[in-house]
Each structure stands twice: as structure tokens, then as C-alpha cells.
Nucleic acid binder design. Structure first.
Lengths: 294, 294
DNA sequence: CCCCCGCTTTTTATACATAAGAAACATATG
DNA sequence: CATATGTTTCTTATGTATAAAAAGCGGGGG
């Protein structure tokens, strides 16, 4: 019933580990591999067994050595390493953003399960978790309603985002000079400049940098509710922009420059400057999102 | 498999409806009852059938009349009207707040299911929904961790709450004189004064009034994320104070007075005053909560 | 002893089953 | 023909089953 995606992912990761070792070298212990792969020993053993069966690993008395270099084609395909629940997420996002769903559409668990080819339990579980993004709503003893990826969604999202980011930026600026975050913000600036220099080729890398940047600022004064809200933002940008690639390069370039301005403002410790830079960035991000929705 | 709690709740509600009617009177149509009871016609028919079987209702040619007054003891007990998922919520809260769980405790789906006497599916679904309250966290392929009802939980909660309430209070004060909310706030004041006058007997009613008051202020400028956060607050107050009744009367009296001060501030439209009243109330609420945790 | 490994037990992820409830359709009656 | 009731179909709420993964246990070797 349960899929063996954990095993397959671990198997692929194990290939990478073996490739860093020499032929004939002795493998780390099961426990060491367990930590490296981030799975249980049970799964490690399954991976080792699989590799032995393929001759990649040879078991000698009380030790295991590398018999032959694993080839890339022995890796399991990416899809098979995703848990069903993760596949459902992708399917659902696609369903939603493809435009099959307009605001007010009723969501039917059974139908989605059929469409995605999975059990209803999983769809149900996904919808329950997805609820926190504010895009769907449950009705007692009936299905769900899709509230729509609308302008008001974007506005409400950014209202909160502004509160949270302004709060974090201010707290950030109040940190003492000796704090390690100033080093981190320096390297963050470097990463931004690097990306900017090569923007034509690498503009797609921005999304991840963006998320890291905002999380760095937020992390100085941890608050679980703010962190949880970051997930909402990440989801929106991750999926929504996957389906709206218009002006992506230009959009990202603007955002990078805004980030750089905010970094400078933070380093100045000048609250007024920080507020302005922060608000400017958020306003432009909001306009971009609104623009892409309409 | 599914429990018939919906039917039982509707049955009880139906008793209340019948009691407002005269003996021998004709009942409303199935469709009318459907709206009144807030269930499907299928369930209405089941209720009607049940009442016919008990002689409460007599079916004549194309009409149904009330045969005899239903007695209160014919009601289904409250527990049987709660869906399993709701029962699980109560059980879990009890488990959590009884102190069986200290911060860092691992939560085991199977064990909880056994303890509560329900299927694992339900426990799992509950935990997924409960995650949004920030008290538990999931670990991949393993169970959940209870993060604890700790001081930092309270502090993080109130940090957000302050942001949200200040925002709403300000927007509230900016509403034009003609807005109906000023009437509502008036009757809210009346309700507070009434409760205050009878505080010794009715101090337990405060919790619900508190929730209504804060929701009224929040509702003027709807934001789904703020509304969702209100659920967190409601949950905390609902359950936590059920287990910490120390000084309840005094606590509630203080809070009522603070609400009245805030109402006055709102009506003055003076932002500085509003900010102060709001912050005062939240600070005292926070201290109370912190106090009860320690 | 302490770590490694083979084996056993427990728990989670996922599928499937079914009664209760909702919705849709059909028929009747005024 | 519109509204109320009878009937059928579809969906949700909840239980059970099971393979995969995790956790626990005990012996053996350094």
C-alpha cells in the first residue's frame, strides 16, 4: 500500500555518496549512513541490499566494499521518489492554476481522487493541510469551495506580509554590531550582486534567493506564526509564477535591486530608510502579483 | 461506519421547533425544515420518520401534524450529537492540558487512536488540522512532536495578536459616522455593562463575549489570514482557561473594564487613545496567560 | 563495554470498504 | 406548472487492512 519512495530517494542519494568514494573502499557503517541519508537503518539496509544485488557493493566478512561505480542510469526517476502526498500537491496546484477552477468552484474529494489517480484519504489529507493557505474553505458534511486566486487574496496576503516584514526588518536593524547576521547579510548582498551580474542566464534562480532573503530577515526574532505565514508566501510565488512567466527576467531584476536597497537600509540602521525600502519592495511585489492575476 | 450525529442533532433541534408549535398543527414542508435545521432533506426525512415512529408526528394524507408534545427526555444526549472528529478534538485537548504532555513529547498517532477509541485516520486528520495552532510539528515519516503550551508560545501568539488588533482598531476608528458598526459597538457596550452588573453569577459568559467583541472589531476590514488567526486565539482561550480557573471572576472583570475603555477610545476616534487602550488590554491579557502557564 | 549487525515489533502512509448524509432526479398533487 | 414528496445516485465521514519505514532488542566481536 505504502509506496517505497523513501527507499528510492535514499538509493539515489547513496549513489551520490558512493561516487565520492574510491573503488574498493570500505563503506561507512549502517548507522553512519543512516545519519547521512536521513532515513532509518531499516531503509539503509534495504538500499545496501539493493546495491549488493546489483554488484555495486560487495559484502565481505564484516565489511562492505565498493565493487563498481554506480552508473547514473541506475538512479530511480524523480517521480518515483516523490511521496503520493507530494504528487497530489503538484497535481492540485496544476489543476488550480491551469484555470480549471474559477472562484466559487466546488471541490469534490472523490472526483479529485479519481482525476489524480490516488485514494480519497490522501486528497482529503492534502486539502486539510492546504486549507491554511486561505484558498479553500470547508463546508460541514459537504465538500470544499475554491475561493479563487483573486485580487483580494493577493491584497490580504500583502497586508499581512507588510506587517510581518516591517516588524522583522526593524528588529533586524536593532541587532548589535557584533551579531553574526551582519556577516550573513553581507554574503546575501554578494549573492544578489552575483545573480544580478548574470541575470540573463540565471534569472530563474531568483525565486529561491528571494525566499532565503526573507527568511533570513524573519529569523532574527523567531515567531512560529510568522514562519508559518512564510510558507504561504513561498507557495504563492513558487506555484503562481510557474504559470505566469511573463516578464520574469525584468521582474526579478527589479526585485533584486529592491533587495539591495533594503540591505543597504538595514545596514544604515535608519528606521525611516528601512521602512521606505521595505514598503517599496512590497508594493512593487504586490503590483506584480496583482498584474499577473488580472 | 459513519456516525449518525447529524441526524441526532437535527432530531434534537426538531424537538425545539415542534415545541413552538401547537398540538395538531401542520408541520412545515420538508424543504422549509431543511433550511431551518441546516441539514439535507435526506436527514429531515429521517428525523420525520423517527418522530412518526414515536407518535410525535402523525402522517395524514399529504400532510403531517403534531400528534403529541415531545418530552425532553426523548432528546439524544449531547455526546451522541458530536461528530467523532469533534470528540477527538476534545479528547486531545484534555490529553494536552491535563499535563500528560510536556514540551518535546512525541505524539503517536496509533497510541492516541487507541487511547481515544477511534480510528487512526481520524486522529491523523485532526493532527493535520491542529497543526495550524502552532503547538505541534510533524516529522517526515515519523510522528508528531508536541512543542508545548509554553511561555514562548504565549509570547509569539500575543506579538501577532497585537499587530492584528491594533491594525483593526485603527481601521475601525476610521469608519464614517454613518456606519452601522457604531450601533453594534453600542450594543456591545451594553452587553458588557450588563455582564459587569451581574459578574458574580455570570462571569463564565465572558469568554464568548470576548470572542464576539474581538471579531466585531476585526470584521470591519476582513482579511482571511487575520480571521484564521482568531481561531487560534479562540482555541487557546476556550481550552486553556477551562483548565485554569484560578481567579477567573476577577480576571474577567478586569478584561470587561478594559474592553469598555477600548470602546470609549474607539468612539473618541483618537488614534493615540485607541492604541493605548488596545495595548493595555492585550498586555494584561498576555500577563494573565503567562501567569497561568508558569 | 560500545558499536555493529541480524532480527522483531511498532508505527506511518496509503488503499479500500461502507453507512450516513447530500444532491439529483422522478413523480405526484393541487 | 410549481411545489412537495418519493426514489436513486453520488459524496463524505469513518473504520479496517497492509506494505514500507522506523524503532527497539539482543548477541557477538573488537
Amino acid at each position: 500500500m505504502r509506496t517505497d519512495t523513501t527507499f528510492k530517494r535514499a538509493f539515489n542519494d547513496m549513489i551520490d555518496i558512493i561516487r565520492t568514494l574510491d573503488l574498493g573502499a570500505e563503506l561507512p557503517s549502517e548507522n553512519a549512513l543512516r545519519t547521512q541519508l536521513g532515513v532509518s537503518r531499516t531503509t539503509v539496509r534495504k538500499v545496501l541490499a539493493g546495491m549488493s544485488a546489483r554488484g555495486i557493493i560487495i559484502s565481505e566478512a564484516h565489511k562492505r566494499i565498493i565493487g563498481e561505480r554506480p552508473r547514473q542510469q541506475e538512479r530511480y526517476p524523480k517521480e518515483e521518489t516523490l511521496a503520493i502526498s507530494e504528487q497530489v500537491e503538484t497535481s492540485f496546484m496544476e489543476w488550480m492554476l491551469r484555470g480549471d477552477a474559477c472562484p466559487g468552484t466546488e471541490i469534490n474529494e472523490t472526483e479529485l481522487a479519481r482525476k489524480f489517480g490516488v485514494a480519497t484519504t490522501i486528497v482529503r489529507e492534502f486539502l486539510n493541510r492546504f486549507q491554511k493557505y486561505g484558498l479553500i474553505e470547508k463546508r460541514q458534511n459537504a465538500g470544499w469551495v475554491f475561493k479563487g486566486f483573486t485580487a483580494s487574496f493577493a491584497l490580504e496576503l500583502f497586508e499581512i506580509r507588510e506587517m510581518f516584514e516591517m516588524r522583522s526588518a526593524r528588529l533586524f536593524a536593532a541587532l548589535p554590531d557584533g551579531s553574526p547576521v551582519w556577516k550573513q547579510i553581507q554574503s546575501m548582498r554578494a549573492a544578489h550582486l552575483e545573480l544580478l551580474a548574470d541575470i540573463d542566464a540565471r534569472f530563474q534562480d531568483f525565486s529561491e534567493l528571494d525566499s532565503r532573503f526573507h527568511r533570513l530577515i524573519t529569523a532574527v526574532a523567531p515567531n512560529r506564526f510568522i514562519e508559518s505565514f512564510q510558507d504561504v508566501i513561498t507557495m504563492v510565488f513558487h506555484y503562481h509564477y510557474q504559470w505566469n512567466k511573463r516578464d520574469e527576467r525584468a521582474r526579478n531584476e527589479v526585485a533584486i535591486r529592491e533587495h539591495l536597497a533594503l540591505i543597504e537600509a538595514l545596514e544604515s540602521r535608519n528606521i525611516a530608510l528601512i521602512d521606505r525600502a521595505c514598503r517599496l519592495h512590497l508594493t512593487s511585489a504586490r503590483e506584480t502579483l496583482l498584474h499577473s492575476i488580472a
